[in-house]
Design a protein around this nucleic acid. Structure first.
Length: 577
DNA sequence: GCCGTTTTCGGCCCGACTGTTTTCAGTCG
């Protein structure tokens, strides 16, 4: 059973306990367990087999026993019993903003409402007016929220949100008297999707900045416009909030608004143990009651005895403990990258020539770039067979003689066929500098078959990188069903790198798997899979994922000098031949 | 239900907003 499925059960239990009016700390315990399990990089089933369930933070005796029951029987009696106490569907009411457990319960008990549709109908018939604390305004708000939730797509890709934020920040920078200007929230943490865009600023005249903001080109609707905060919807359909705040507490404010929520909770719990109360306004000493303000985040963390924590790590996944030990890793940065090892050209489905891609790479400060067009198996992508690949290798040789300051590596993105064999013969593959292998077909194979298939590719001495290992497309295609732990172990053993694909809708491997791979000693490669020159700039999203996975330059093969990289590839051939 | 720089028992994050059966409960981020 998948981690997400187990997490869902505990999250439902938390909702049901809320309706029951149970102890709020018990509810929180279930919520926390669900949240941790949802983003846990190791399959819960595996931890169960190893008897290590309680090593998951937030999972104690009771929840561990429930996980065991779920995995053994496929069911949980406690959950079934709880569900039977309420009509099915009632927890869906909790998804409506403004409706919590108390409201949901009275909607059901007083009016028999058990679904969002019921609720809408009865509000329109004005039958909810009899309820305690549910007047006209609340009813109107519920209708508004339900309708707007139906209309808008919930979260948008980071790759779409970041350019919007940058565009706005750039425009506001021109306003006289503006000092700080920084996007916060999940955007600053480089989370793969974001809900809305939140920007914080300090300025001499806040009204002036907000005034410019609501009149920027591309603003579709102004939702609110006050003296310190304004909210708009931009033409891309995303909500953008701008807050202009006090300079002397800017540090604690951006810390608070950057999140994550879980990170902030963990931080405040730690503060309490030190007799300190944390909030967005600063830190209050509980003994003296005095509030201390912090202009910078560094000072804020320092007051707690912590090293500053990069936003990408702020997910309550052990970063606070590491910061206390002053042992936060020196995360990989964009400037550490020396090349891109997976790009396409006109030879298959790319838009630009080899030369154009190479020059663009040079412009970005790279030392090398690997051309990895599709192999013939991909009919739709005008894939390369043996003869055309030979010609391409010749072309690359000629270009390398002509161009200076950039080394073009001859490569291929070879298809891993359904049976695990590669789409091109070894004789031609060994003529290449680098071989990237990938799954593009038969993605619905069962777990056992898929795992064997990928392992066969990893064990091939000529395969250097596994591209987009889970094949997911965010919001569109689920991950393939595969034993990732096993894949990672084989990748580590054979010296095969796993790719962090930087395409905004892929970001594959995703952050939590990157973190696990790194723990297991797997090397990673941050590539763009660029199909045009401008795609090379997507690399920063891949870097964000690597940072969220706690990677340092040594973990990322394309931060290495060319000789070290070639050495890495040679070693695998020698090892497995 | 979880957990331990004060704890194996007794705590458990913080502040703001909103509607309102008006002194605050309920909800949210």
């Amino acid at each position: 059973m998948k981690n997400s499925e187990i997490a869902k059960i505990f999250s439902e239990i938390a909702d049901l306990l809320e309706l029951k009016g149970e102890n709020q700390y018990k509810i929180r315990a279930y919520k926390k367990a669900a949240q941790v399990i949802e983003s846990y990089p190791i399959p819960i089933e595996q931890l169960y087999k190893e008897g290590k369930l309680q090593q998951i933070p937030g999972v104690g005796e009771s929840i561990a026993a429930k996980i065991v029951e779920i995995l053994r029987t496929g069911k949980l009696r406690y959950y079934e019993k709880l569900k039977a106490e309420f009509p099915p569907g009632i927890t869906s009411l909790l998804e409506i903003p403004g409706v919590g457990p108390k409201t949901a319960l009275s909607l059901w008990k007083e009016l028999g409402i058990t679904s969002i549709e019921d609720l809408e109908r009865l509000i329109e018939e004005k039958k909810t007016a009899v309820l305690f604390r549910l007047g006209e305004k609340t009813a109107a708000n519920i209708i508004k929220h339900v309708q707007s939730q139906r209309r808008k797509e919930q979260r948008i890709l980071l790759g779409k949100a970041l350019p919007i934020a940058e565009r706005i920040v750039e425009a506001l920078r021109e306003v006289p008297g503006v000092h700080d200007l920084i996007p916060v929230g999940s955007l600053r943490r480089f989370k793969e999707t974001v809900g809305d865009i939140d920007i914080m600023a300090t300025a001499d005249e806040p009204e002036k900045v907000l005034d410019v903001f609501v009149h920027l080109p591309g603003i579709q609707e102004v939702l609110a416009h006050g003296g310190t905060k304004a909210s708009v919807i931009v033409e891309e359909g995303v909500q953008v909030d701008l807050r202009v705040v006090e300079k002397d507490s800017f540090g604690s404010l951006i810390q608070y608004f950057t999140g994550s929520k879980e990170h902030n909770i963990a931080l405040r719990e730690r503060g309490l143990k030190q007799g300190l109360k944390l909030s967005e306004y600063g830190i209050t000493d509980l003994k003296t009651g005095k509030l201390e303000k912090f202009p910078t985040e560094e000072e804020f963390y320092e007051r707690l005895g912590l090293q500053w924590i990069p936003p990408e790590l702020r997910e309550a996944r052990g970063e606070i403990e590491r910061a206390a030990l002053r042992n936060i890793p020196k995360l990989v940065e964009l400037k550490d990258l020396r090349g891109d090892l997976h790009v396409h050209t006109k030879w298959s489905d790319g838009q630009d020539t080899i030369e154009a891609m190479a020059l663009a790479a040079k412009e970005r400060g790279y030392e090398y770039i690997a051309i990895a067009d599709h192999s013939a198996g991909r009919g739709i992508a005008r894939g390369l067979g043996v003869e055309r690949l030979k010609k391409q290798i010749e072309e690359i040789k000629r270009l390398n003689q002509r161009l200076s300051g950039i080394k073009i590596l001859a490569g291929i993105e070879v298809d891993i066929r359904a049976d695990g064999t590669l789409d091109l013969p070894d004789e031609i593959l060994q003529e290449l500098d680098v071989v990237v292998a990938a799954i593009h077909s038969a993605m619905s194979q069962d777990k056992e078959k898929m795992t064997k298939r990928i392992i066969a590719a990893l064990e091939h001495p000529l395969v250097n990188i596994l591209a987009h290992p889970t094949c997911r497309i965010i919001g569109e295609r689920e991950e393939i069903d595969v034993d990732l732990e096993e894949i990672m172990r084989v990748a580590a053993r054979t010296g095969t790198a796993l790719e962090i694909n930087s395409m905004p809708d892929r970001l594959d491997l995703r952050d939590i798997y990157v973190s696990r791979a790194r723990e297991l000693g797997v090397k990673l490669s941050i590539n763009t899979d660029a199909h045009a020159v401008h795609h090379l700039d997507y690399i920063r999203f891949g870097v964000g994922v690597a940072r969220r996975g706690w990677c340092e330059p040594k973990d990322i093969i394309n931060t290495w000098p060319l000789e070290a990289l070639e050495d890495f590839f040679r070693k695998k051939r020698a090892l497995l031949r």
